[in-house]
Design a protein around this nucleic acid. Structure first.
Lengths: 188, 188
DNA sequence: AGTGCTAGCCTAGAGCCTCTAGGTTGGAGG
DNA sequence: CCTCCAACCTAGAGGCTCTAGGCTAGCACT
């Protein structure tokens, strides 16, 4: 009968921590209830279902990631901004693998809108202002940058680069150099 | 008592089809058994466990993808090879979303080795021969290309590009143009 | 202080998925 | 025709999901 004081927000934060500890796939309603010392059924007054829980973790991760990216951009421009932004993504993925893995869930359009996922695009556009691209080139560049950052961090986390001795950090640095050059000479 | 003639291979192929139909996350031993009209337990003589099944689907997808990429490269060079290779990836992901999603599982190093995942790197290196990069630039470029192709197809499938009206195919074409330019002028 | 109400947590239980142990049988090879 | 093994089975334990319905702590109001 001891009341723990559950709220949706506390549950989602705890689920995010759980994800980082045991992997996103092992984030279950049961495991979360266990962590709070309550019965599974008690969580269903705060969450619609298990999918809802996972989506909320994804939304949290998206927001945290945007916050970090925004901080990284503060006071920076040009290549410096590009590198800081990219590192914010990669560092977040490495510090919070479970949260980052949450981003692979298919967010429904409504949730994506509610989560302000477009904030990421806006931040990326802020970087690109230093490269003076006009539309639609800027949109294409935003998509290219997102794809490359997301792809790199995902493949790195999955061990996709580990079958070759080349230092991954060095490849990352070179990738950013290359993207800088590319943005500076974007083909018309 | 009617014997269906199960083998690990038939099961994995059916699981791959199931993945494309209902999504990789819904590929379960139960669903697969149902599809063959047998009891769940019957599958465990062919599969170690559910995780094993999913890994085998991933290995199958990796091999199919490499086959497609190899065909796409046949008789092509330079930018033409780059575009054909990239499209092989993207088309596979769109035709077989469930199989492609299987690739996000963390393959253990042993499985990755057994699955010849490095074939993808070799194919990518074949493209890069047209651009005359020396090591370690070539390895960095391989990683960049994989990251970008994988990131783009993943984000596209997850609807990450749908909040902007810009045509995704056009962005894809422009991305390939840009990568071609980048590879042609790789920074030293 | 007493009374109600609501939200927080509970039990019970059904349904599905995973996986093990051990039993039966179809059918190929001797 | 017999043997034997692989293919498939039943039975059952244990975990996760989710619903229905019950109890009660603690706040609000008198």
């Amino acid at each position: 009968m001891a009341r723990v004081g559950l709220t949706a927000e506390r549950l989602v934060r705890a689920a995010a921590e759980l994800a980082d500890e045991v992997g996103f796939d092992n984030v279950t309603v049961s495991a979360l209830a266990r962590r709070f010392g309550v019965k599974d059924a008690s969580l269903y007054s705060h969450l619609r279902n298990a999918q809802d829980l996972r989506e909320r973790v994804a939304v949290l991760a998206l927001a945290e990631l945007a916050d970090r990216a925004a901080s990284a951009l503060a006071g920076r421009a040009g290549k410096e901004a590009l590198v800081a932004f990219a590192n914010a993504y990669r560092d977040y993925a490495r510090e919070h693998p479970g949260r980052y893995a949450a981003l692979r869930v298919d967010l429904t359009p409504e949730i994506a809108a509610a989560s302000r996922a477009d904030r990421h695009s806006e931040l990326t556009r802020a970087i690109l202002r230093g490269y003076h691209l006009s539309e639609p080139a800027e949109t294409d560049a935003v998509r290219l940058l997102h794809s490359t950052f997301h792809g790199f961090t995902t493949l790195e986390a999955a061990g996709g680069f580990s079958h070759h001795p080349r230092d991954t950090d060095a490849s990352w640095t070179k990738t950013l150099d290359a993207l800088h050059v590319l943005l500076s000479h974007w083909p018309s």
